[in-house]
Simulated scan of single mutants.
Amino acid sequence: MTAGAITVDTPDGARLAVRRDGQGPDLLLVSGLGGTAGFWAPALPALARAHRVTRFDQRGIGASGRGTAPCDIDRLAQDCLAVMDALGIATAVLVGHSTGGAIGQALARLAPDRLRGLVLSATWLKPSRYMAALFGARRRILDSDPVAYAATGTLMGYTPSWLDANWATFEAATAQAPVSEEARRTVRERIDALLAFDGSASVAAIRCPVLVPGARDDLIVPAFLQEELAAALPPERRVVTYPEGGHFFPVTRTPDFTRDLLAFAGSLA
């Protein structure tokens, strides 16, 4: 297994902190609103045994610089292309969770020839009243009490029993709350970006194979939104719905998630 930390510079000055692990066909892992490469840590050992896995902190998050360009979903998709180009990745299976799935849909429109497959995990197709109300409320909490913002997002994102048994996850999330004005500004623009995303005009044209994993008890991207996305995709798409797992089921159901992801990626070889 090979491993390493790499930096990739974008034209507008964002320096992206990238990590690569393993060997084999390329997987590009793109996380959600939090935007960190670390989200994928529980899944990494299983995935890196069969694949070369690339993951990165998104612009303005973790060890990555913000750059000067406006931040929207297309910009974040272009950052994925910048990483692929810099690392010589001709094609990859992109695994996008939540906002990462919106980024994946945008990349499928912008550069369809770069994707061998697409995993749209806990993802939606277009804005809904539920998401507008939820993230509008979260944005107001962010402005008034960033620690409460981190706490409520964590409480909503994991199943209660899993979180209670893994309480260090809650403590870490609140300790890393976006308390600085710069951090809050980055979260605000990312919330605005995800709420502005609408993939309905291009989703039916996605050419690569698609896997749509979701969870019935997801409170952040509820199952009805995942079902709406699946229905709009070409009929060859594959759907996996876990009976429980919360929004962060790649963490709470890691063995199931990695099993299904590896089976999908393996079928594309």
Rank of each mutant, 00 (worst) to 15 (best):
M1L: 15
G4N: 12
D9P: 02
P11F: 08
A14D: 00
A14K: 03
V18Q: 01
R19S: 10
R20I: 12
G22P: 02
G24Y: 09
P25R: 07
L27T: 01
F39E: 00
F39D: 00
A41M: 14
A41R: 15
A41N: 13
P42C: 08
V53E: 01
D57S: 11
Q58F: 01
R59Q: 05
G60F: 12
S64W: 02
S64F: 06
S64L: 07
G65V: 06
T68G: 13
C71P: 02
D74V: 15
L76T: 07
Q78K: 15
D79M: 10
V83R: 13
M84I: 12
M84A: 07
L87W: 15
G88A: 12
I89C: 07
A90M: 13
H97E: 04
S98T: 06
A102M: 13
I103R: 03
L107K: 02
R109K: 14
D113G: 12
R114V: 12
R116P: 02
L120I: 04
A122I: 08
T123N: 11
P127M: 05
R129T: 11
R129K: 15
Y130S: 01
A132H: 13
A133C: 05
L134W: 09
F135Y: 15
G136L: 10
A137V: 13
R140G: 00
L142Y: 01
D143F: 12
S144D: 11
S144C: 09
V147H: 08
V147L: 04
A148T: 06
Y149T: 03
Y149Q: 00
A151G: 05
A151H: 11
G157V: 04
G157K: 00
T159R: 08
T159D: 05
P160V: 13
S161Y: 03
L163H: 04
N166S: 07
N166Y: 08
N166V: 10
A168L: 10
E171A: 14
A173T: 09
T174I: 15
A175H: 14
Q176T: 15
P178Q: 06
P178Y: 00
V179Q: 11
R184V: 02
R188W: 11
R188P: 02
E189I: 12
E189P: 09
I191D: 06
L195W: 01
L195Q: 06
D198V: 14
S200P: 05
A201I: 13
V203L: 09
R207D: 14
R207Y: 03
R207H: 09
V210C: 06
V212A: 01
P213G: 02
G214P: 04
R216G: 07
R216F: 08
D217H: 08
I220E: 01
I220A: 05
P222W: 09
E228I: 10
A230P: 07
A230D: 11
A231T: 15
L233K: 03
R237A: 13
R237Q: 15
V239I: 14
V240W: 08
T241R: 11
G245K: 01
G246H: 03
F248I: 13
F249K: 06
V251N: 06
T254H: 02
P255S: 09
T258R: 04
R259M: 09
L261M: 13
F264P: 00
A265F: 00
G266S: 07
S267W: 06
L268V: 10
A269S: 14
